[in-house]
């Protein structure tokens, strides 16, 4: 923390050694605790939605414990039906989580010095929140290679615990429309959108996604409009990118 440099560790992999130990786990865990509380808010919302989709507390808890990727889980539960549209769910999860590849790649200057077990084990617990904290920590030259693991443990614990609480709360509510619970999903996505908005640079892809989804919802069956909207926005961004 002595070096307040806040750039995202832009490649100048310092020559200091990267350690992987209890100290880093502890630092990551404590730093992430306040943010993990916020993650708990999403977990409760996810649990309520999962209960609405017919998932048991055990199933939703298992999903949070093994997938550990909030937005994609919320979308998956939105797509959930009987029978489960497996291909659509997996494609959506893949598309939404593809950004993790970029985030994981950004850790390369430090993680290339860890063992495969340490690096890939830590990446299992990578979420947006603890990744950002970890980039800041490693970028400041701390050399604490276990920071992602420690912060990930904090996020994971709150995410799984709040998911189960949310399912139990959701199951106790009864008729959803009476209390406006049918609106929770839309409200969750509105809140997610507010967090994902990156200013003017989001305007074009989001407009493309909106127009594409509205059109595809008219023309195509099921929930393909979600992937169509997302893919069109990604494609347009690739084409119009100008450095």
């Amino acid at each position: 923390m002595s070096n307040p440099r806040s750039d995202e560790g832009s490649g100048d992999a310092d020559s200091r050694t990267v350690t992987f130990g209890r100290h880093g786990v502890r630092a990551g865990f404590l730093t992430a605790l306040p943010i993990a509380l916020g993650v708990g808010g999403y977990g409760i919302a996810f649990g309520v939605l999962a209960a609405g989709a017919g998932l048991s507390a055990a199933e939703a808890g298992l999903m949070s414990a093994t997938v550990v990727a909030g937005t994609s889980q919320i979308v998956a539960v939105e797509l959930w039906a009987d029978p489960i549209p497996v291909v659509t769910v997996l494609l959506a999860v893949f598309a939404i989580n593809l950004r993790y590849s970029l985030m994981g790649a950004a850790l390369q200057p430090w993680f290339s010095r860890l063992s495969a077990k340490q690096a890939y084990g830590s990446l299992f617990l990578m979420a947006d929140e603890n990744w950002a904290l970890t980039m800041r920590d490693l970028g400041s030259g701390s050399g604490r290679g276990a920071f992602l693991l420690g912060s990930g443990i904090a996020v994971w614990t709150f995410w799984v615990g709040s998911t189960v609480l949310g399912v139990l709360a959701g199951g106790a509510i009864g008729d959803p429309a009476r209390y406006g619970i049918d609106f929770v999903l839309a409200a969750v996505f509105v809140a997610l959108a507010a967090e994902l908005w990156e200013g003017r640079s989001s305007l074009v892809p989001w407009t493309v996604a909106l127009a594409g989804a509205l059109l595809a919802a008219e023309l195509l069956p099921g929930q393909w409009y979600i992937l169509v909207g997302g893919a069109l926005a990604g494609g347009v961004e690739v084409i119009r990118y100008d450095g």
Partner: peptide, 8 residues
């Protein structure tokens, strides 16, 4: 992609 899918 994440923002676009949420909007979609």
């Amino acid at each position: 992609l994440p923002g676009a899918i949420v909007i979609a």
